[in-house]
């Protein structure tokens, strides 16, 4: 691969860049993880900065895991993430594909209508009233339907579809394939990188949902993970208001990040392979 001196220099340069980025991201993350496992005394003795703890404690995790709400919160979050993302993807693709076809009459109007909602938003109370009218309030669907399509994700997907070579569609149409067949048989397999990306974006936003949950959900047993984690931290944080509490809130906050992020870190490497170059070329040749 490496051929000339120039190339070698270039390789070194980009290796340095990605290494620096990696370190800049790794050290703070390591700090968060270690913090969650380090006894408070050791954290304090080190001026709040511990990268590799000498002693390890699980007290923050034990404290959080014994909370009976955590299990239901995990279930709720898993449900909205899996079901929500699936519905998001189907609707977004079905919206993005037709609107990426430049020959579709009225295309510009539809896109403008969609982009307009990114700029003009209605505010909390009116949106709440509509969510209530549609009958999903205080159910997990309130976290799925009102965020069915994100304008940003729609635009990214649409522009990816626009970049697909036109002759693909032509030949398919000549073969007599309908639009639905083209979307699911041709576009979809060719778009794995972008589909993975957008799914990831949707999934993470469902997994991290907080504001919508506290506005649209009232019952504690229907709350998603982030709300329950934040409640546990807040209960420990109010130390000057409430003279009773004794769990270091910082440690809990760090542990909460680890609990909330771990599933995504575990899943990510499995989806990462879809980012590999060459998906499209193979398809065209084949």
């Amino acid at each position: 691969m490496v051929k000339s001196k120039n190339d070698l220099l270039f390789e070194i340069l980009i290796a340095v860049i990605i290494t620096l980025v990696g370190l800049a991201c790794l050290i703070p993350i390591l700090f968060v993880i270690s913090y969650s496992f380090t006894p408070m005394e050791e954290v304090l003795r080190n001026g709040g900065f511990v990268l590799i703890p000498r002693h390890v404690t699980l007290s923050a995790y034990r404290f959080m895991l014994k909370n009976e709400m955590l299990i239901s919160a995990l279930q709720n979050s898993a449900f909205i993430t899996v079901v929500g993302t699936a519905i998001n993807m189907v609707v977004t693709m079905m919206l993005a594909y037709p609107l990426s076809r430049t020959y579709l009459p009225g295309r510009g109007l539809f896109i403008k209508l969609i982009v307009f909602t990114m700029i003009f938003s209605a505010g909390t109370i009116p949106t709440y009233l509509v969510v209530k009218e549609t009958g999903v309030i205080n159910s997990l669907w309130a976290l799925i339907f009102p965020s069915l399509v994100t304008v940003y994700n729609f635009i990214v997907m649409k522009s990816f579809f626009e970049g697909l070579p036109n002759d693909l569609f032509e030949s398919a149409r000549i073969d007599g394939a309908g639009e639905f067949k083209i979307l699911f048989r041709i576009v979809l397999p060719l778009s794995l990188p972008i589909i993975t990306t957008i799914s990831l974006y949707y999934a993470v936003s469902h997994w991290n949902v907080y504001t919508a949950a506290i506005l649209y959900i009232q019952d504690a047993n229907k709350m998603p993970l982030q709300v329950i984690l934040r409640r546990m931290i807040d209960a420990a944080r109010t130390i000057d208001l409430n003279v009773e509490d004794e769990m270091p809130p910082e440690t809990m906050r760090m542990a909460a990040v680890c609990i909330a992020t771990a599933p995504i870190i575990v899943i990510y490497p499995f989806i990462q392979r879809y980012f590999v170059q060459g998906t499209l070329a193979g398809a065209v040749k084949g």
Partner: peptide, 26 residues
């Protein structure tokens, strides 16, 4: 073009209901 228009119906309904309807609140 009707299959294409058919595809965008769910998405457009979403935008009308959850994005445009609340705008009366402005």
């Amino acid at each position: 073009y009707w299959p294409l228009y058919l595809m965008i119906i769910p998405g457009m309904i979403f935008f009308l209901v959850y994005k445009y309807a609340p705008m009366f609140g402005i």
